[in-house]
Nucleic acid binder design. Sequence first.
DNA 1: ATGGTCGGCTACCGA
Length: 260
Amino acid sequence: MKIATWNINGVKARIDNLVHWLNDSQPDIACLQEIKTVDEGFPRAEIEALGYHVETHGQKGFNGVAILSKLRFDEVNRGLPGDDEDEQARFIEGVFSTPHGALRVVSLYLPNGNPITEDRKYGYKLRWMDRLHRWAQERLELEEALILAGDYNVIPQPIDARRPEDWVNDALFQPETRGALRKLEYLGFTEAIRAVTDAGDTFTFWDYQAGAWQKNNGIRIDHLLMSPEAANRFEAASIEKHVRAWEKPSDHVPAVAILQ
DNA sequence: ATGGTCGGCTACCGA
């Protein structure tokens, strides 16, 4: 069972890349972020033609998440609970039946949070992380295989940046931000990429600007958090870095976990 | 070196 997460930075601009990648990589479940379209604008037919079920939680112009799955959805939930005023489309959950039992998968797009001086940005990010913590605590009580996959907009440690000194004033690398991710993980999650290497140079994002890709000036901000029951089924993880070198790439690349 | 590049959408915002 191959589960991938990929911030595609606009599904309409990335449809050729997305189709190519699905054919090439053959994920069973793909979590997408920043689809940047309303649900009606998602190129559903092209994806369904490849044998995927499609569930989206879209928004006009920015944000928006989706789950593509070769397995039928038993259940779908849209939006992170905990704030009825929050209109931003950043969270979708799908539940699947597998030979090894239920599998619950979330595609999340955690707020960027910059600049850190603005409460509507950085405060929103920290409050969103607190809501995610509360939601995850509740879900873990089910004792199911659960994967929280997505663009967390969090650099967990200095080795997760080529140039950590560039990020000291950035919302992605604040002590409070990193502490909130650590607190979430300490509920009992195992991050798939970190589980296979702690050697660094496992970046998932390279900025379009200033030749970041050419200089390998990247960061690791796309993560797959596995519940104990999912971690028990964990076999392998990888980053599909070659996708960043394609024509008209997203600034993120897919990160993948293989479960039994 | 205080720049630079994208996507979505039409005057800028978000990243």
